[in-house]
Design a binder for these strands. Structure first.
Length: 414
DNA sequence: TCTGGGGTCCTAGGACCC
DNA sequence: TCTGGGGTCCTAGGACCC
């Protein structure tokens, strides 16, 4: 019998911010940006949630619901640092650990009873160890499947532990809303409601053939999930497998929509550079480049191009991104731009022989550039076309970050 | 409700090949 | 030539998660 644990940090971003500024404790706090910015809530304190504020809600809406809330920008490096601390603790309990996101993890504690005791005892030990290392609280679910462990930790929130003994899954799940199943979002929920299915128990009553007919492959997986089984969907495979990224991307929403070609091109170049840099950090090459554009009315389009070789070079991304953009742009104002790298391959990408020498020189240059960027921050060095308006403004805001007096002197010519 | 940014997985049509 | 079926790649879109 398997023994899986799901550990989820309580109001993670907010709790980390409270560690750095204890005066925030107990107050309505919203992490994600200023209250009048374009953007959404990343995390809300329990005090803020009482006013109806929740994550993914537009910041301006959060402000209307709770004007007295403290809005903080949020500092990702801090969350990454604490996430690593949590991971280090969990590794002491089992080598089979997987961070499912920055603030949650799965553990396989199968066969550890003699060492750690029964599930509830192990869960308490986990909770205490995390608390000791980070001063942060978490919630823990334990069960014979990852799916049920995850749902259990959600039910245990905040600051709770819930163990579903083998055989108790159906009874535990029966009264919960179908929405509690990971993977069932707004759309699937609506579709299920239309069939008169509201609770997971309703779902478990139906036969798999009906669900497959109505919802395809997904329906079949749903039938299993209603019974607490992992099979089908993301819970396939063992914990700790598959940590190579499948895509790398950056996107950005303009603070004001723009149709200015120079601004748009500069943003495409900047996003391309950020993507390429991350690929080089991961020692990956990409064969498919995709862009995303979103207009003022929120209509969104993607365009992609698969190259005959894999690359990790800024200029190739930028050229492809700009070509894709200008081929499909209607000329109307743009709200968001994104650049994505897919079909990732490890190691050296292939280039044809003629280009090889040029590429190698580029790689050397980029390696030097990455070093400078690593030292002084991402915005100090850029391709000439990336040195345009929105970007340069940021450089001037932080003159103390600059290696020299004139940032443009560090810009690279083509 | 005027709607971020980083991802994963799935579907579906068309091209192309055998 | 009025016409099959499967496999794989490419492209676009969408649901969902944190």
């Amino acid at each position: 019998m398997k023994s899986y644990f799901h550990l989820d940090m309580d109001a993670f971003f907010v709790s980390v911010e409270e560690l750095f500024d204890p005066s925030l404790k107990g107050k309505p706090v919203v992490v994600g940006g200023r209250s009048n910015e374009r953007g959404v809530v990343s995390a809300a304190s329990y005090a803020a949630r009482k006013f109806g504020v929740h994550s993914a809600m537009p910041l301006r809406t959060a402000y209307k619901l709770c004007p007295q809330a403290i809005f903080v920008e949020g500092r990702r490096e801090r969350y990454v640092e604490y996430s690593r601390k949590v991971y280090a603790v969990l590794q002491k309990f089992s080598p089979r650990v997987e961070m499912a996101s920055i603030d949650e993890a799965y553990l396989d504690l199968t066969g550890t009873e003699r060492l750690l005791g029964p599930p509830l005892a192990a869960a308490h030990a986990l909770h205490n160890a995390v608390r000791e290392a980070t001063q942060l609280n978490c919630s823990i679910g334990a069960a014979a499947s990852r799916l049920v462990a995850k749902i259990a930790s959600d039910q245990a929130k905040p600051h709770g532990i819930l163990w579903i003994p083998p055989g108790g899954e159906a009874r535990f799940l029966a009264t919960l809303d179908v929405r509690k199943i990971p993977g069932v979002g707004k759309v699937t929920e609506r579709n299920l409601h239309e069939c008169g299915i509201r609770k997971i128990g309703d779902l478990a009553q139906l036969d798999a053939a009906f669900l497959e007919k109505r919802f395809g492959k997904w329906g079949l997986a749903l039938a299993g999930k209603a019974r607490g089984e992992d099979a089908g969907g993301w819970f396939d495979g063992e914990i700790g497998e598959g940590d190579d990224p499948k895509s790398v991307s950056h996107e950005s929403t303009f603070s004001v929509d723009t149709a200015d070609t120079a601004t748009i091109d500069a943003m495409l170049v900047r996003l391309s550079e950020m993507v390429a840099r991350r690929l080089r950090d991961h020692q990956l090459h990409a064969r498919t480049i995709q862009i995303k554009l979103r207009y003022s009315d929120f209509s969104t389009f993607t365009r992609s191009k698969t190259l005959d070789h894999a690359t990790q070079i800024d200029t190739e991304f930028a050229a492809a991104a700009r070509a894709l953009f200008h081929k499909s742009w209607s000329g109307k104002a743009i709200r968001l731009l994104g650049v994505y790298a897919q079909s990732l391959e490890a190691g050296e990408g292939q280039t044809n022989l003629l280009e090889e020498d040029k590429m190698q020189r580029w790689r050397n240059t980029l390696a030097a550039v990455d070093k400078i960027r690593g030292k002084y921050g991402d915005t100090t060095v850029s391709l000439a076309a990336g040195m345009n308006a929105p970007f340069r403004a940021r450089v001037h805001e932080n003159p103390e970050n600059l290696p020299g007096k004139d940032p443009r002197s560090k810009g690279l010519d083509k």
